[in-house]
Computed example of a mutant assay.
Amino acid sequence: MSPIDEALVKRIHRDLQDDFDEELELELEDRDYGDLPSDTPPDERSARQRYFRELIRLQSELVKLQDWVVHTGHKVVILFEGRDAAGKGGVIKRITQRLNPRVCRVAALPAPNDRERTQWYFQRYVSYLPAAGEIVLFDRSWYNRAGVERVMGFCTDEQYEEFFRSAPEFERMLVRSGIQLIKYWFSISDDEQRVRFLGRIHDPLKQWKLSPMDLESRRRWEAYTTAKEVMLERTHIPESPWWVVPADDKKRARLNCIHHLLSQMPYEEVPHADIELPARQRREDYIRHPVPAEIIVPERY
């Protein structure tokens, strides 16, 4: 194995370890950082600890933001765009991880069906917009037309140009209606996307993330770059500017994006009344009937 190949394998293994760590984030209260492999370098161990500590701190601020959004009736839409494997799903998961799904929800629309293709282009996105006290995160959005549809030839030149005439007006209309619109583009390098795709190819738990469209997008890297540049130039407006997140380092990208998101709203901690657990009512004639054994899930673990 050449030194380059060996380094690539080590990198993929590190990414797998990161993925395992991510799945354990919800159990951080019980996590022992000493469980990392014994040969983990001290600086890497320390970096992981710093990441988790800062992530938890930012997530606690997101909870305060959520309370403020509900309390004030604020309406927020956040768009996450970027190349395949840029890390959009990862940051969305970290944002929503500890929030109420009734307040903060994700919209990840599939390809339009035959009926939707005959509608006004923005129509199918409108039903996902927030009411007062809600946050909606779009995992890809109406900017599909400026990206994948343009590159893959799924729209005509006329539809493409009409999108750029309509999108700024559509977004200005949303802002005038009281919706705060925040747009993020996750930017990764050619080499980094290659490594992440290889990681997905060799990880059975992530192979489902690789579609034929993803692989074709890899081949058309330069066409996507051109489409992105045009999109940013023609839809970066004062009412809803684009924010570019350098995303070659997944952990830094998540922390930087969440920190920036928090800075975009003048939230403050909402006071709550003290909570007291009420005494349970008890009746002398109450009898708890046993559960039939045949409907109990077997205890295999």
Rank of each mutant, 00 (worst) to 15 (best):
E171W: 03
V195Q: 01
A107D: 05
Y121E: 14
P130H: 06
G199P: 00
I179Q: 07
G178F: 00
Y184E: 00
S189C: 01
P112K: 09
Q123S: 07
E216D: 14
R218N: 05
P204V: 07
P204L: 10
P130Q: 07
A107E: 11
E222A: 11
F154W: 04
Y160E: 01
R196H: 07
T156A: 00
V136F: 11
P130G: 10
Q207I: 09
V106A: 11
R218C: 10
L215P: 13
D214R: 01
Q159D: 07
K183T: 06
A223T: 10
Q207D: 09
G133F: 11
S166T: 15
S187C: 08
Q207A: 01
R172A: 03
L109K: 03
R145D: 08
Q207Y: 12
W120A: 06
I188A: 04
W208D: 10
A223V: 01
E162M: 00
D157W: 01
G133I: 12
S127F: 00
G153K: 01
R218T: 09
R165F: 05
W142A: 07
G153M: 05
I188H: 08
L129N: 12
Y121A: 11
E149Y: 08
Y121K: 15
D190G: 02
P130R: 15
E161F: 00
I135M: 12
R117C: 01
L181F: 00
Y184V: 06
E192Q: 15
R150N: 02
R150V: 04
R150A: 10
Y125D: 13
F164A: 06
V151Y: 02
G199C: 05
P212N: 13
V126F: 10
S141G: 14
W208N: 14
S187Y: 08
M152F: 03
Q123R: 15
D214E: 04
E222Q: 12
L181Q: 03
Q207M: 00
A132T: 12
V195W: 13
V136T: 14
A107G: 05
Y184K: 05
Y121V: 09
F164S: 01
S177W: 09
E161S: 11
L137I: 14
D190H: 15
L181P: 01
F138Q: 15
E222L: 06
Y121I: 13
A131L: 03
I179K: 04
E149W: 09
D114S: 02
R200G: 07
G133Y: 12
D191V: 05
W208K: 12
E162Y: 04
A107S: 09
R176C: 06
Q159P: 02
H202K: 12
W208P: 03
A132R: 15
L137V: 12
E162L: 07
A146K: 09
A131Y: 03
Y125H: 15
A146I: 08
Q180W: 00
E171L: 03
E169P: 01
N113M: 11
E169Q: 08
Q193W: 10
M213K: 11
G178S: 01
W208L: 08
V148D: 05
A167C: 08
L137S: 14
V175Y: 03
T118Q: 10
G147S: 07
R176K: 14
F186Q: 06
P130N: 14
V151F: 00
T118N: 03
S127Q: 12
F170P: 00
G147F: 07
T118E: 14
L205V: 13
Q123P: 09
D139Q: 04
L205T: 10
L137F: 10
